[in-house]
């Protein structure tokens, strides 16, 4: 075995890179924050109503960066319109669905924000439900778009959408907490978001982290005890080349350290909550990197 070497081959680029992984992160964080925003108006948890506006605006802003990344990353940016033209649109292509979702999700958010501002509970709730489905679907599809590539063994797992959604949920909350903290400096005292709400959000985040660790563990099991390709992809590519984003950024910085903070007395301190939120939001970006680029890496030598 040792004495068999590949001495020449063509070279292949990994096809989706940094812009796409940032885009995945943004879409996720957007969906996460939007879910928070919907707590008050859609699920009727009154305490959350005050943050609905900032949360949806954050979600919208992030989603406005997305098309820039996506469209400019296309070889032919002007042709992005083909993604939606009848006659071009392709029902079996996950991207084609994604395009529809990415277009309709912000629209529904805009309408939702409109009713929130008008303080129209019925319509806000009605549109909010639609928007939440779209938000989740938008992020679900990013998982699917990677999952439906049987040749990319790391990505080819039914866990993909769940991993993405969980990541979205925790990164959304993390980001939201940071944003609210900053927002609190700029608004009148009575409009400030209470600390107890933040603590509660951190609590949700913690549950999310636990679930995410569980999912990662499942994924780890599959790849670690999987086919040769899975083992190689996990053992050499993720643990090797993508060691920093995979092991350190996502798992240690993004999950375990925040978890440790949130189960310790630190969770009552502001530093603890803000710190954990920041780490989570940032750590999830690590996952987007290894997931997008690491998954394709092994094959670039084939």
């Amino acid at each position: 075995m040792d004495d068999s070497v590949i001495i020449s081959n063509a070279f292949h680029h990994v096809a989706w890179g940094t812009p796409i992984s940032i885009y995945f992160w943004l879409v996720g964080a957007s969906a996460g924050s939007f879910v928070l925003s919907a707590f008050g108006w859609v699920f009727g948890i009154k305490r959350y109503k005050p943050l609905a506006l900032s949360a949806s605006i954050l979600a919208i802003v992030m989603l406005l960066i997305v098309p820039v990344l996506l469209i400019w990353d296309l070889g032919k940016p002007l042709r992005f319109i083909y993604l939606m033209l009848p006659g071009y649109w392709h029902s079996t292509g996950p991207m084609a669905w994604g395009a529809l979702l990415i277009m309709s999700y912000p629209v529904s958010m805009f309408i939702y924000v409109y009713f929130v501002v008008k303080n129209d509970q019925f319509w806000a709730r009605f549109v909010g439900i639609i928007a939440i489905v779209l938000a989740l679907s938008t992020h679900w599809y990013t998982g699917v778009v990677m999952e439906l590539n049987p040749g990319r063994y790391i990505n080819h797992t039914a866990l993909a959408p769940l991993l993405f959604l969980t990541g979205a949920f925790i990164s959304g909350i993390g980001l939201m907490i940071i944003v609210l903290w900053i927002q609190n400096f700029f608004v009148r005292p009575e409009k400030r978001i209470e600390w107890s709400l933040m603590e509660e959000m951190a609590q949700y985040m913690m549950y999310g982290i636990v679930f995410d660790i569980f999912l990662l563990y499942l994924d780890f099991m599959q790849t670690h005890y999987g086919t040769e390709s899975e083992m190689l992809g996990h053992g050499e590519v993720l643990m090797g080349i993508f060691n920093f984003p995979y092991v350190w950024l996502e798992t240690v910085i993004g999950l375990f350290i925040p978890l440790a903070i949130l189960v310790s007395p630190l969770k009552r301190t502001r530093l603890g909550v803000y710190g954990a939120s920041f780490l989570v939001a940032f750590g999830v970006y690590g996952m987007r990197i290894w997931w997008v680029m690491g998954g394709q890496y092994l094959q670039s030598f084939y």
């Binding site: 680029h13 096809a15 296309l74 070889g75 032919k76 042709r79 992005f80 590539n149 040749g151």
Partner: peptide, 21 residues
């Protein structure tokens, strides 16, 4: 003339048969 250069197909092909010009 239809291709938008999204490279979904490049990711999809298990054989590295595709490239962006």
């Amino acid at each position: 003339n239809r291709c938008i250069g999204c490279r979904t197909c490049v990711v999809a092909c298990p054989y590295n048969a595709r490239h962006l010009l």
